[in-house]
Nucleic acid binder design. Sequence first.
DNA 1: ATCACTTTTTGCCAAATGGCAAACGGTTTC
DNA 2: GAAACCGTTTGCCATTTGGCAAAAAGTGAT
Lengths: 187, 187
Amino acid sequence: MERFVDYVMQFGNLNKHQINLIQSKATEVNLRKDEYFAEAGKPLKRIGFVVEGVFRICYYNNKGEDITRYFIEENHLIFNPHHPDEPFTEYIQAATDCRLITFANRDWKEISDTIVGWDAILQKIIQKGLTQKLQRRSPLVEHDAKTRYLKFMENFPTLVNRIPLSYIASYLGITQSSLSRIRKNIR
Amino acid sequence: MERFVDYVMQFGNLNKHQINLIQSKATEVNLRKDEYFAEAGKPLKRIGFVVEGVFRICYYNNKGEDITRYFIEENHLIFNPHHPDEPFTEYIQAATDCRLITFANRDWKEISDTIVGWDAILQKIIQKGLTQKLQRRSPLVEHDAKTRYLKFMENFPTLVNRIPLSYIASYLGITQSSLSRIRKNIR
DNA sequence: ATCACTTTTTGCCAAATGGCAAACGGTTTC
DNA sequence: GAAACCGTTTGCCATTTGGCAAAAAGTGAT
């Protein structure tokens, strides 16, 4: 729980009262590998902060292939910026066993309505998240498969041996077998 | 000039006084194809709003290849969010002849200090820009060359016949000759 | 119209990556 | 330990894309 408060306070200050309010609304949730935190077509039920584990955002294309679009690591927030009630178009799946701190949408809104400056904090979080995502994904376009994998290892050093190769491959836009061969050549 | 005011007012309201302030600080700038609006290593001299033309954001990799990272179309703002004085790491080059409305950094800051709500408007603009960029770039990763080009045409329908094929190719992470062959096969 | 210049297309071949299926290796279950 | 299961690696070959250079097409100036 402190982890979440620390996280938020990187982006703005909170006093004791405010921290208490947040704590009073928080619920711990545990998910096993492969369970979904959000499913395409349904609105996000809760806002979640990843304390332990890794999630992936994925979808299915028209060939039925399962494509990973992004990874969400420890100390990151899962939510649908500005559209709390709109359905997701993708799945958010636990790529490992995960522990989260979560908030019901209603409580989250109450926090936002009560804490002055909360929205500004969220703004910063959203913006930082978008920027990071862009910086990680965009360069993949211009590089070949091997370079992509090297970039992945730079960007997500803690993930390499924690999640299935197939997730990484589809994140990088290459096939499993290609990635396997690349891995072999690297070390 | 109205174009810029209209643009801003999509994101928040301005009264007459505020509009006048903005207008009093605006300067029109024209750039010829290939001229730079910003250069790597230098801070952005002015904030610019594209009235006519297309810019591209590009850089040079270690092989000396010129890579296009993004296009900036009409009715978009060119600035360095939150870091007005930091040097750019990339070039912003006119891909066609361009007409801009620009503001000196100092004046831009004055606008921001004077107009209540300006920063919130900027926030929205920044966020929308980031989101759009991400939505356009990210899907390229997972698709083959032909699909990338089709997506490019969806995302930038007005650019296809206005800018050199080589810019589009490097934006898509493929070679000029590949793109040329793809084009041939499409129609 | 001609020339110089730039951009695009094409041809040829090499290299990278994909598709598919089988083999391999590790883990869990009985 | 055997069997079933899952993820990864490998082999084989097809397809896509790249690299390079020449040809063709387009543009602008004289």
